[in-house]
Each structure stands twice: as structure tokens, then as C-alpha cells.
Amino acid sequence: MISHIRTMWLVFLHLFHKKATIQYPEEKIRLRPRYKGRIVLTKDPDGGERCVGCYLCAAACPVDCIALQATEDEHGRRYPEFFRINFSRCIFCGYCEEACPTYAIQLIPDFEMAEFKRQNLVFEKEDLLIDSQGKYPGYNFYKAAGVNIGVKEKGAGDQEERPVDIHDLLP
């Protein structure tokens, strides 16, 4: 009996405790930078698309919500002809971000993407592309290494050396 009354008193005191409720539309929770929300396609520091259309994200996606078609421009630079994410299927697992070799696809802290029509949840490339480098500023895939596709000259990349002139005697 005493313990019952004590329980009731302790529960009553909760009237004056701080409430755990966050009143959502007015008051928002602080999302951490690594929160896995809406998916975006980022650009490199020169403003070009980072995506090279390698299909690794589409292959990694457990719910098959990513569809894309790769193509090349006149210099041989690969880019996606279309890039489509169906957010009504997406489970925001972040596997696409992990799979991406060029840091193009990234998940950002935003979950407010409710729509009245289901079709509006299918995002095309122009909806996904943002004018930002996302979480990896300064990274430029095409400038790191690789063949000349109009971004850098042969051997001018950050992680490569100039080609050796094999006819020269000096080291």
C-alpha cells in the first residue's frame, strides 16, 4: 500500500518534469551532418558533375530504386544521361554513398520530402544535382589521376607524375 502511494506520488511529480516532446513543425530536432536523409548528386570544384555513371550505386541499392544510363561527351568524359531515384522505394540505407567511387552521390540531413502524389517522389537528375561539393570539398576525381578527357593534361594529376621521356639520358 505504501509503495503504491509512493509510486503515485513519483508519477505525479512528472507533471513538473521537462517534457521529452519536440513540437515538430515549429521546433526541429538538430540533425547531425552525417544523418542519412535525402540523396543528392554533388559537383566537383570546377562545377562539373562528379558522377561517372559507373552503376555501382544502382548495383549496391538493396531496393533497386536507382536507375541511370551512362554516356560520354566528345572528350570521353563519362556522365549519366539520366539519373533517377525513386524515393518512394528508397530506404535511406546509404549503401549508394558507400559504393560511390567519386563521392558524387551523398546523403544529406533532410527528411522533409512528403508529397501528395507518389509520382512526385521520383527525382530526376536535375532534381538531384546540387550546386555544391557536399561533404568532400576540394575533391576532384578527374584531377587526381587518369587519362586525358579535357580536364587535365596527361600526367598533370595530383597523384601522378609527368611521363618520363625515355629518350632522355638524365634521370
Binding site: 508519477v11 505525479f12 512528472h14 507533471l15 518534469h17 521537462k18 517534457k19 521529452a20 516532446t21 513540437q23
Partner: peptide, 10 residues
């Protein structure tokens, strides 16, 4: 709701 540290219908 108050006794469960919530706000309830408001």
C-alpha cells in the same frame, strides 16, 4: 501525457 513526460493533444 504530462505524467509520461509527453505533451498530449495540444
Amino acid at each position: 501525457a504530462m505524467w509520461q513526460d509527453r505533451l498530449g493533444p495540444n
